[in-house]
Computed example of a mutant assay.
Amino acid sequence: MSGLKSGAKWNFDGTIEETKVTQRYEIAGEEDVDLPAGKFHTWRIHCEQTAPANASIDRWFVPGVGFVKVESAVKGESGGTLQKSTLTLTEPPKIAAAPAANPATAPKKFTAGVSSEDKGELKTEFKSDTPAIYVRWHGQDLRENAEIRAAFIAESVADVAADYEIDETNATPPKPDSGGTFTLSKPEEGWSPGSYRIEFFVNDEPATTVKFKISK
């Protein structure tokens, strides 16, 4: 995440099976925070979520380190706060090596890919002005109540620590043969050039990894 600018806005709209996720982001500005891990000069990123539940989320981001603080509040239908939580960095982050896939424990068949279109051809490289990146996955012969986890990782991106996990999402497929799609909308300043990957896990066992690049 480079080229940060106060007031920049972007959207995230995606689905996992029948679960829709809608989020609106805005960079609120620069702030200094004092945490157990130390003092940091951060960018506060505010998120308003309307699906699957109404929530407000604030994240404090440090280039080269990642998110050092996260505050979230789940709201009721009337707008009142139902639940609040705060996560803070307690010690400097340690970057772990990417896990190696283990074919012996992966499901019988699990595929994934990325595209610039909802149902378009899969790609491995995108331009920084690509309007949206669609991430599609499909599994067969999944066990009952299997948990699918996808981790979005910046392998080599300016101002971000190597192999930094940007975000992750989880889903429980309703049937053994299931698939899903989630959409990443282009930030207002464009995608940051670099190398990325999305790691998929089934019941915490590596299933597949999708790598792609973003160029200017």
Rank of each mutant, 00 (worst) to 15 (best):
G3P: 10
A8V: 03
F12T: 01
D13G: 05
G14F: 13
T15H: 10
I16T: 11
I16Q: 02
E18Q: 14
E18M: 15
T19C: 02
V21R: 03
V21Q: 02
Q23T: 08
E26N: 05
A28N: 00
E31L: 03
D34F: 11
D34W: 14
P36R: 00
P36N: 02
A37D: 10
A37G: 02
A37C: 09
G38S: 15
T42W: 00
T42L: 10
I45C: 08
H46Q: 11
H46I: 11
C47G: 06
Q49D: 10
P52M: 14
A53E: 12
N54W: 01
A55W: 10
A55D: 02
R59V: 04
F61M: 04
F61G: 01
V62A: 01
P63C: 13
G64V: 08
V65D: 10
V65R: 06
F67K: 12
F67V: 08
F67T: 10
F67N: 01
V68M: 02
K69E: 06
E71L: 09
S72T: 13
S72D: 02
S72L: 13
K75Y: 02
K75L: 12
G76P: 05
G79W: 06
G80H: 07
G80Q: 15
L82Y: 02
Q83V: 01
K84P: 13
L87S: 10
T90S: 15
T90L: 03
A96G: 04
A96K: 15
A96P: 12
A97G: 14
A98V: 15
P99M: 08
A100R: 10
A104P: 03
T105S: 09
T105Q: 08
A106P: 12
P107S: 03
P107F: 06
P107R: 06
K108M: 11
K108I: 12
K109W: 13
S115G: 14
K119S: 08
G120F: 13
G120A: 04
E121F: 03
L122N: 07
T124R: 10
A132C: 11
W137I: 09
G139V: 04
G139R: 05
Q140A: 08
D141L: 09
D141H: 13
L142A: 03
R143Q: 15
R143F: 06
R143I: 09
E144P: 09
I148W: 02
I148L: 11
I148S: 01
I148T: 03
R149A: 07
A150D: 07
F152W: 14
E155P: 05
V157L: 14
V157D: 01
V157R: 00
V157P: 01
D159C: 04
V160Y: 00
V160E: 06
D163K: 07
D163E: 07
I166G: 04
I166P: 00
I166H: 09
D167Y: 14
E168D: 15
T172N: 14
P173T: 00
G179I: 06
L184H: 00
S185M: 08
S185E: 11
K186W: 02
P187H: 03
P187W: 08
E188Y: 07
E189Q: 12
G190C: 02
W191S: 05
P193F: 07
I198D: 02
N203C: 10
N203I: 11
D204S: 15
P206R: 07
A207D: 00
T208V: 12
V210C: 04
V210A: 01
K211C: 07
F212S: 08
I214V: 13
K216E: 12
